[in-house]
Computed example of a mutant assay.
Amino acid sequence: MTIAVGEKLPEAKFKEKTADGAVELTTADLFAGKKVVLFAVPGAFTPTCTLNHLPGYLENRDAILARGVDDIAVVAVNDWHVMGAWAQQTNALGKIHFLADFDASFTKALGLEADLSGGGLGLRSKRYSMLVEDGVVKSLNVEESPGQATVSGAAAMLEQL
């Protein structure tokens, strides 16, 4: 069952690359007492994710933060090395949290997993965005097609803030 607006995020652990290596972060670390925009992509370095979804959040980062958001994070079912390389390659390191849901446990707990085996990607996340306040989902925007980033894009999120 997919998480719904008004529900609390499940407890989960992520890894994020830092200058000192991998850091483990929990949902409490990321969302407790904060207003956070979280968006998910099927995979780091994939075309729509790299050319459309992530750039929108980078370009609109200041506008999003100016509307009372404390932080922005992207999550993908990838390892922390890949997520860290993606952050560096896109000049987004330190601007957005790049969270590795390395075993898809968070994605599965949300009910937002997608079997993309037909495209050679295996189990991944659906593309979505959500506004989370103190760990509670305030808005949820799930794309119908993983190749689109419209309802989950930064422009749509800005309209909701």
Score class of each variant (00 low, 15 high):
36 V>D: 12
97 H>I: 01
10 P>W: 12
153 G>F: 09
45 F>G: 05
26 T>R: 08
98 F>N: 08
146 P>L: 15
52 N>V: 13
110 L>H: 04
42 P>E: 07
115 D>M: 10
16 E>A: 04
71 D>L: 04
48 T>P: 06
38 L>I: 09
63 A>S: 15
17 K>T: 01
154 A>Y: 07
101 D>E: 11
62 D>E: 15
13 K>V: 05
108 K>L: 14
39 F>R: 09
44 A>E: 01
123 L>Y: 11
158 L>V: 11
41 V>I: 15
30 L>P: 00
28 A>G: 01
158 L>S: 02
89 Q>N: 14
102 F>G: 02
154 A>N: 09
87 A>R: 05
12 A>C: 00
18 T>Y: 10
138 K>Q: 12
72 I>F: 14
72 I>E: 06
105 S>G: 05
65 L>Q: 02
136 V>T: 11
141 N>T: 14
117 S>R: 09
23 V>R: 13
108 K>H: 13
65 L>Y: 00
114 A>R: 14
100 A>W: 02
28 A>S: 11
143 E>W: 12
79 D>T: 07
118 G>A: 13
25 L>N: 08
5 V>P: 12
65 L>I: 15
60 N>R: 10
126 K>D: 03
112 L>I: 12
86 W>E: 00
19 A>K: 12
13 K>F: 09
117 S>K: 10
41 V>Q: 03
149 A>H: 04
95 K>Q: 15
119 G>W: 10
145 S>P: 00
41 V>P: 03
102 F>V: 01
87 A>W: 04
101 D>P: 00
125 S>W: 10
59 E>F: 03
108 K>Q: 15
72 I>V: 15
103 D>E: 14
25 L>H: 06
95 K>M: 13
6 G>D: 07
106 F>E: 03
96 I>Q: 05
20 D>T: 11
126 K>F: 08
159 E>W: 07
8 K>V: 02
27 T>Q: 10
123 L>M: 14
54 L>F: 10
137 V>T: 07
130 M>C: 12
17 K>N: 05
77 V>M: 04
133 E>G: 03
83 M>F: 04
79 D>Q: 04
89 Q>C: 06
132 V>P: 03
146 P>S: 13
125 S>E: 07
2 T>C: 08
76 A>Q: 05
35 K>W: 09
152 S>T: 13
71 D>I: 09
149 A>S: 11
63 A>I: 05
35 K>M: 04
110 L>A: 04
140 L>C: 13
119 G>P: 02
20 D>P: 08
67 R>A: 12
5 V>Y: 11
127 R>F: 14
49 C>Y: 03
153 G>T: 04
16 E>H: 01
26 T>V: 11
113 E>P: 00
15 K>E: 08
87 A>P: 08
145 S>A: 14
79 D>H: 03
114 A>G: 02
21 G>N: 10
26 T>S: 10
57 Y>K: 06
20 D>W: 05
